[in-house]
Design a protein around this nucleic acid. Structure first.
Length: 819
RNA sequence: GCCGAGGUGGCGGAAUGGCAGACGCGUCGGUCUCAAAAACCGAUGAGGGCAACCUCGUGCGGGUUCGACUCCCGCUCUCGGCACCA
């Protein structure tokens, strides 16, 4: 075997070396006592499933690029990592492989995953690693549960909940997608009446909505999704008396109090508590049958808009408080008990759903809002827009917006209704009937009822033995913390989204043994400056984390009300048109990539493959272009003498062109890393390398301009190709002690003068061209024409702005001004 | 149905209202080689011209502007989200 030439770029030789140096020097350790400005660069901590692909890696590479640049720019960077380590896949995998404990499975995967990250040269402050399934973490998840309980934000209630028959657990509303389980999209969730633990996120609905305006650096899409999820509606609650039942009334919610005169019937949800009461004897049998059927129907069937609306009359009547009219009360599935008050006034003329229902059951339709353009009487569809009130007694002639206010005022004055705001958001169901999660720290005592486990008795340890907690008496048999009598522990565990709603705070003081996080340190690092992760968390994790942050703000533990200042959702990596994953058989793992062409080429290719926010198709062919680029850079930096001057048509080297290119590259690459436009950042670096090569081939001297180009290229390359950059930087040195760009932290300064200078030349050329046209058109001398052109204020402004094309336009105008 | 994002070469994709197609892949030609691969050099939107150059080109139709991939109006297709929320 022949030895490789001394100066060849061999990634496999240099990468382990630099990974060792960075680790030894602790270059990515964040100091709590630094005087430098802080930068908190966070990537969503992963579920350690063990099959890391280049798709995951792309996300972490992006975070690493930013961390490295910010470090080189002089920030104290917090770039931590951890593991969302509780959850069902561990249990499922453990069951499948027979006898492997979820903990063992999870910890093994963490080791594998960590190795891959390190191979890619991704640097974290590993001293701050958190693992949500370890007692020193979930102890504080339990502590926070108790804090929520103390603050009245955790409660236990019986309610119809979503049940996944496959995972055998309840689910949060956010985990139900089109009536199906988020983890098994082919499995319909069932409705079950169960007593469960909830977090009162609805108390924060208005703040979660209003504070969205602080999140101007979040993707528009995510803000829209959260806004819709919270779903605020303004309207009124109105009480309708029940005919024949003294003192009994039914409260409805409407967003259109201005259509109150158009209410021709009322509809109750089948689950509404007053159904039995308002039903007359002659209708009772049919109502009972209908309600029973509705309860049995699956959520999917009930919620389908395709489905024809059904309903039955109760025989009872309600009285419209506004006009005293008696309207029939119906029961229908299309009214949901979980929204508003579970009862509506039906205004078929101005609501599509009520219209459909009225048509089907021949109920009266009365127009009370006339469209502005006239042409009423159209009874083929509901008119849902604004208009002028008609058939509305004393309110006739008002526009519907004014009518809204007047009717609300009237209702409030008479004490039969009031303005109200309703949200689509429901409380967060946090209990799960699973083993592999943080036990909910409460005890049920026959005497004292629900008793929280005292905070100093935490953690409530998960038993070693892998079996349902409810079937493990050694776990649930306990004594009441209050009275000491025999009691039973809660055997449900918490949703893993509870674990992940606060992990970014734990990084501030990961070894704190007194509290979940040290408020002083958390406030020092928070808010997160950049948060990077998948858009699949647009609602779930991001909404919950915002909720937690606000609760902790209210508890005086945090000074921020929003956790994540800037959010970025990277696209997914696909292969053969499918999202990459090991189970789908189309995964490419990072170590395959590193083995083939090295970590740096792999990293750069991950960034260059397409816009970071877009889904990209993985394709090995493009990787070669990046490898070629790195070899070319290596040669330009370390062996420029090997690049020959080529004769012929090639333009002679111009130092001004190179100087300008260097300056522009600094500006463009810095801005692009900062703005997470990594694909174009790579392109700019390739352009610089191409310009440098042209310069040498054109016979350019290796002088100060050249040296600055070399240094700039090496430095700007560091965040994306750190190993090769560090190696080149060291070799450029005088052979003294190992030099590390990352440790020395120096980012190139942008030289605005150099960037602008050659553009001035271009402008003078343009002026020359226009001067010719001016002289031709006016007969002025060349000097006079040039002076005229350059004297224009607008020309000067354009010159100062470095916009030669504007100058061309301005001067064209100038020509037109001259007769 | 409602909300949101988007449509640019053979492909991935660039373009604060100012030379459309940067950068890369692929393809073609060349150097090197007995040959091939690799590497390196050159060409590469379409049509026309020996040439300098010319014409047409960013989903479709209008508009604003000296100038439109970019802004406005209408349409169309694709992709994402929500979907009986009163």
């Amino acid at each position: 075997m022949s030895t490789a030439p001394r100066n060849r770029y061999v990634p496999q030789e240099i990468e382990p070396k630099w990974q060792r140096i960075w680790a030894d020097r602790g270059v990515m350790k964040a100091s709590d006592k630094s005087s430098k400005p802080k930068y908190y660069d966070l990537v969503m901590y992963p579920y350690p499933s063990g099959d890391m692909t280049v798709g995951h890696a792309r996300n972490y590479v992006m975070g690493d690029v930013l961390a490295r640049m910010k470090r080189m720019q002089g920030f104290e960077v917090l770039h931590p990592f951890g593991w969302d380590a509780f959850g069902l896949p561990a249990e499922n995998a453990a069951m499948k492989r027979g006898g492997v404990h979820p903990k063992e499975w999870t910890l093994t995967n963490i080791v594998k995953f960590t190795r891959e990250l390190k191979m890619l040269g991704i640097l974290y402050d590993w001293d701050r690693e958190v693992t949500s399934c370890m007692p020193d973490y979930y102890r504080w998840t339990q502590w926070l549960f108790l804090l929520f309980y103390e603050r009245g934000l955790a409660y236990r209630a019986m309610s119809p909940v979503n049940w996944c028959p496959v995972d055998k657990t309840v689910l949060a509303n956010e985990q139900v997608i089109n009536g199906r389980c988020w983890r098994h999209l082919d499995v319909e969730v069932e409705k079950r009446d169960l007593e469960q633990w909830f977090f009162k996120i609805t108390d924060y609905a208005d703040r979660l909505l209003n504070d969205m305006q602080l999140l101007d650096k979040w993707p528009h899409k995510v803000r829209v999704m959260q806004t819709n999820w919270i779903g605020r509606s303004e309207g009124a609650e109105v009480d309708f008396a029940v005919a024949g039942h003294q003192g009994e009334s039914i409260r409805i919610f409407t967003t259109r109090p201005d259509t109150l005169f158009g209410a021709t019937f009322m509809v109750l949800a089948p689950e509404h508590p007053l159904v039995e009461k308002v039903t007359t004897d002659s209708h009772r049998a049919r109502i009972r049958e209908y309600v029973a059927k509705a309860r049995k129907a699956t959520e999917i069937d009930r919620m389908s808009t395709e489905r024809e609306k059904t309903g039955v009359p109760t025989g009872g009547f309600a009285i419209n408080p506004l006009n005293g009219e008696k309207i029939p009360i119906w029961v229908a599935e299309y009214v949901l008990m979980t929204y508003g008050t579970g009862a509506i006034m039906a205004v078929p003329a101005h609501d599509e759903r009520d219209f459909d229902f009225a048509r089907k059951y021949n109920l009266p339709i009365r127009e009370v809002i006339a469209p502005a353009g006239g042409a009423g009487d159209d009874l083929s569809a509901a008119y849902v827009g604004p208009g002028v009130m008609v058939n509305s007694g004393q309110f006739d002639g008002l526009d519907s917006k004014t009518g809204f206010d007047r009717i609300c005022a009237w209702l409030e004055e008479k004490g039969v209704g009031k303005r109200a705001v309703k949200y689509r958001l429901r409380d967060w169901l946090v209990s799960r009937q699973r083993y592999w999660g943080a036990p909910i720290p409460v005890v049920y005592c026959e005497v004292d009822g629900i008793v929280p486990v005292p905070k100093d008795k935490l953690p409530v340890l998960l038993p070693e033995e892998y079996k349902p907690l409810a079937e493990n008496p050694e776990f649930w048999r306990t004594t009441c913390p209050k009275c000491g009598r025999e009691a039973r522990r809660e055997t449900d565990t918490m949703d893993t989204f509870v674990d992940s709603s606060w992990y970014f705070l734990r990084y501030a003081s990961p070894h704190d043994e007194k509290e979940p996080f040290d408020p002083e340190l958390a406030n020092q690092w928070m808010p997160v400056d950049q948060y990077t992760g998948g858009v699949e968390h647009a609602i779930l994790h991001l909404l919950y984390s915002r909720f937690f942050t606000k609760v902790l703000f209210d508890a005086g533990m945090l000074k921020v009300t929003e956790p994540f200042m800037r959010l970025f959702n990277q696209g997914m990596v696909k292969r053969f048109g499918q999202v990459m994953s090991k189970s789908a058989g189309n995964g490419v793992s990072p170590d395959e990539l590193v083995e083939k062409q090295g970590a740096d080429a792999g990293r750069i290719y991950e960034l260059f493959i397409g816009p970071p926010e877009e889904d990209v198709e993985w394709n090995d062919a493009g990787l070669n272009g990046v490898v070629k680029f790195l070899h070319r850079v290596w040669r330009l930096v370390l062996e420029p003498e090997s690049i020959e001057v080529s004769g012929g048509a090639r333009a002679a080297a111009d130092p001004a062109v190179l100087r300008r290119k260097v300056a522009q590259t600094v500006k463009n690459v810095t801005d692009d890393y900062d703005g997470l436009r990594f694909n174009t950042a790579v392109a700019y670096l390739m352009e610089l390398a191409n310009t440098m090569q042209d310069y040498l081939q054109g016979g350019g001297a290796r002088d100060a301009v050249w040296d600055s180009a070399v240094q700039t290229l090496v430095k700007l390359l560091n965040p994306i190709g750190p190993h090769v950059s560090e190696e080149m930087w060291e070799r450029l040195g005088d052979g003294g002690p190992t030099r590390s760009l990352l440790a020395d932290a120096s980012w190139p300064e942008f030289d605005a003068a150099a960037a602008a200078e050659p553009q001035m030349t271009l402008v003078v050329q343009v002026a020359g061209k226009v001067r010719d046209r001016l002289t031709a058109a006016t007969g002025l001398s060349e000097e006079q024409a040039l002076a005229l052109a350059l004297a224009s204020e607008r020309v000067r402004a354009a010159l100062n702005g470095g916009r030669p094309s504007k100058v061309i336009y301005v001067q064209d105008k100038l020509i037109n001004l001259v007769p």
